[in-house]
Simulated scan of single mutants.
Amino acid sequence: MRIVLDAVAKRRAQRALPETSTSYETGRATLAVAETEQRPTVLGLIASGRMKIDGGSVTIDGRTDAGAIRRRVALVDAPIVSEPEPNVTVAGVVAEELMFAGHAPTPFAAQRWLERLGLASLASLPIGNVEAAQRIRLLLELAALRPGVEGLVLVAPDRHGGEPTAWWRTAEEFAERGYAVLVIAGRASRTALSAVPTEREDAR
């Protein structure tokens, strides 16, 4: 699967998102750079087929099909749109995602799932207090549980602090597992990752 964003823009005078081009594909992690409070989420919504564009094009495997992108790509941790409420416990977040994935959403099932990831100690912690690298791994694993998901668009992981190399390693691990991974972050993260071999596109 290959998703290409070609000169996409949003809203009059491109204020929400100026013309931006990037792409991501199966088996590869790609970093797109977007800044301001709003633009990373706007770009994430467009890249996952969840927002109409006012300019440019978005294609999946060479065709325009926003519905196919929505079905096959999960939008992960986008501020306001798909981020979990900060005061909900990790077990609560897991239980809800298990329900969306068609599994039993019980506290016992959530605890067992966390144990398999080695994150059982986080169960009673509010998700807003989880360290950045663990949060990103947790939310990517949960998104990957959903039926039919082949791509993951992770929005602004750098807003949680921590070392960019930690969440970037996780993104690359998911790419190695066969997912198409797009990470949207700021220029400071790009600089921190500059020594790491990767596919990157500036979102400008």
Rank of each mutant, 00 (worst) to 15 (best):
P84M: 04
E150V: 08
T198F: 10
G62N: 06
S124W: 02
A203C: 10
G44Y: 00
R63Q: 09
E83H: 15
H103C: 04
V58R: 00
E115H: 10
P40L: 03
A68V: 05
S82K: 04
T191S: 14
A29S: 13
Y24S: 07
L98N: 01
P18I: 06
R159I: 09
A185P: 05
E83A: 15
F174W: 05
G151D: 00
T165G: 11
R50S: 09
V4L: 09
E163M: 10
R72E: 01
V4W: 03
A133D: 08
A13T: 07
A9Q: 09
L5S: 00
L5W: 01
R169Y: 12
G186Q: 11
R39C: 03
A156Y: 08
G102I: 00
D202F: 12
T198W: 02
L5K: 07
S21I: 05
R190S: 11
E201L: 13
D65H: 06
E35K: 11
E199H: 15
D158V: 03
L114R: 06
V130W: 03
G118P: 04
R135A: 12
L43S: 01
A16Q: 11
F100C: 07
S121Q: 10
I127L: 13
R200E: 14
T165A: 15
G118Q: 06
T26K: 13
I136Q: 10
E131S: 12
R2E: 12
S124L: 09
I127H: 05
E176S: 09
R116D: 03
L43G: 01
L17A: 07
A13W: 05
M99H: 13
Y179W: 08
T30Y: 07
R11S: 15
A66W: 03
S23Q: 13
E19N: 08
M99Q: 14
D77H: 13
L98C: 10
L114A: 08
R11D: 11
T198N: 11
I184E: 06
V4F: 05
T41L: 03
A171S: 10
A91D: 02
P105M: 03
G67E: 11
L98V: 04
